[in-house]
Design a protein around this nucleic acid. Structure first.
Length: 469
RNA sequence: GUCCCCAUCGUCUAGUCAGGUCUAGGACACCAGCCUUUCACGCUGGCGACGGGGGUUCGAAUCCCCCUGGGGACGCCA
């Protein structure tokens, strides 16, 4: 039988990276076994589900390249199926109508907690044989077995046993006719033909209930794999409110989708000592057995390093294409010219993210508005002024405008005057970029372009005059 | 409270299932040095962990028990 996995997020906010990782693992598992990967939107909670959140899920999946094989399934469009399935169970005596009010349920729950007992339904309606009547609110409850053991044979967690006595009769259809989570999931898993369910380990405790439901339907139970959660850098639970919990936030911070996947796949999973993976390598080497059982914390520095490694593999043409929107946000139009690509190549080893590349490269594309104060005070002085002036004249008449010719010219001046390379490089760097940080000065001069270089050097010389005068 | 899961450097992890080759390996970070026109990249070296206590065994990071610590579940949320 071929493998079918699925990702089933609820559209109630940002797409959490913990969820994204389970999506990745499910996707990887399906790809690895040449099976199918499906998407299901769990939107039965009408209060909390939103269109925007649904769109966010689609956007995240497509940005990451996590493609699903069929049209997404929306639980909200399957309400009739759930009701029909619930009726089936009632007719078979495996579920029953319950007229207990929310208030009564709250009361017995409060009572149990007060007595330090596990809160559970008291089975009041279990054997009443109630029939639905118009005018009274009722739910449908699953008749859970009273005794025996449910075994979860988990791909990640191993074998976990639960006593049926620990479980109670869960509501499967609410008073408004909508299904509850545990029920809808089982019906969907059956209808969608899911063979493997990989999800967060916060669902492990739901699994025995769901297994009983599968049994009630007489259907095979899928293979489960419960993966641990992702913790914040402080080792705490990652709240949905936190920005770093959202993948799309990572996109706007300039991270690459393949790097996000690489970072996430290494969180809780390993393949020997290998740190860097292409998507192809992940698929080839993915093995659920190697998923850790313990939760992992986020580490931004390592994420940045991984992103940097992927930045180094990026072709200049693609990098510019990806960076254009970031420049645009800053009001800078950048084309895909040869020059733009060379600028990326010059900055590639200095950029952890696309955003960092853009922020460090604005002076190539727009005016230098001001100098770094300290740097200017140190390097733009009456002492460096004649050096700037001499280089400016040489550059103005330099026959070949390329970095090696520029480098040769600077070397010439430096040798004549018997000074260090930096004595001239730093002042020029500040004149051209406003700061002490840039690619090699020869490359920087070349890529800023002759006309602008001359302008900025003139301005720097004037600036020195004004300062000292 | 009850049930369930987890526990190797600061972090991600290898090693745990089949105990010895582990005075515990790799990566990120950090520190020092090299390279050097700045910043990076790169290179070299350093710091740094088996949560605690009992067992079993000739031998335990690896197996068992207890403790501690962390997390999850116990909803007409998912």
């Amino acid at each position: 039988m071929s493998v079918v996995t699925r990702f089933a997020p609820s559209p109630t906010g940002k797409l959490h990276i913990g969820s994204v990782r389970t999506a990745l693992f499910s996707w990887l598992y399906a790809r690895r076994h040449r099976g199918e990967f499906l998407l299901r939107i769990e939107d039965t909670d009408r209060q909390r589900s939103t269109e925007e959140a649904t769109q966010l899920i689609f956007d995240s999946m497509s940005w990451l390249g996590l493609e699903y094989n069929r049209k997404p399934v929306f639980q909200s469009q399957r309400l009739e199926s759930y009701r029909a399935k619930a009726s089936e169970l009632v007719e078979a005596g495996k579920a029953y109508y319950c007229t207990c009010t929310k208030e009564r349920l709250d009361a017995i729950r409060a009572d149990a907690i007060a007595k330090n007992l596990k809160p559970r339904y008291d089975n009041k309606c279990r054997n009443l044989g109630l029939k639905p009547t118009t005018g009274t609110l009722y739910t449908i409850r699953f008749r859970n077995p009273m005794d025996g053991t449910v075994v979860v044979d988990d791909m990640v967690q191993g074998r976990v046993d639960y006593q049926n006595a620990e479980l109670d009769d869960l509501i499967i259809i609410r008073t408004d006719g909508t299904p509850t989570y545990n029920f809808a999931v089982v019906v969907d898993e059956i209808d969608m033909g899911c063979t493997h369910v990989i999800r967060g380990d916060d669902h492990l405790n739901n699994t025995p209930r769901q297994i009983n439901l599968f049994h009630a339907f007489g259907k095979p139970v899928p293979v489960f794999g419960h993966v641990p959660m992702i913790l914040s850098p402080e080792g705490r639970k990652l709240s949905k409110r936190e920005n770093e919990a959202s993948v799309l936030e990572w996109r706007s911070e300039g991270y690459l989708p393949e790097a996000v996947l690489n970072y996430l796949v290494r969180l809780g999973w390993s393949h020997g000592d290998q740190e860097l993976f292409s998507v192809k390598e992940m698929i080839e080497n993915f093995d659920v057995k190697k998923i850790h059982r313990s939760p992992a914390s986020l580490d931004h520095k390592k994420f940045q390093w991984i992103n940097h490694q992927h930045m180094m593999k990026l072709s200049p043409a693609k990098a510019i294409k990806l960076a254009v929107p970031f420049f645009k946000e800053r009001g800078i139009e950048v084309d895909d010219s040869e020059r733009s690509q060379q600028i990326f190549e010059a900055q590639q080893s200095r950029s952890h993210t696309l955003l960092e590349f853009v922020e460090k490269s604005v002076y190539f594309f727009s005016d230098v508005k001001e100098y770094d104060e300290k740097a200017a005070a140190k390097h733009l002085t009456s002492k460096s002024k004649p050096l700037l002036a001499e280089l400016r004249q040489s550059l103005a008449s330099l026959p070949d405008w390329n970095s090696s010719a520029i480098h040769a010219k600077i070397s010439e001046i430096v040798q004549e005057r018997e000074i260090g390379f930096g004595a001239i490089a730093q002042p020029v760097r500040i004149a051209l970029t406003g700061s002490t940080v840039s690619p090699g000065i020869d490359v920087t001069i070349e890529l800023v372009g002759r006309e602008i270089v001359l302008q900025r050097m003139d301005f720097a010389i004037e600036w020195i005059d004004k300062r000292s005068g």
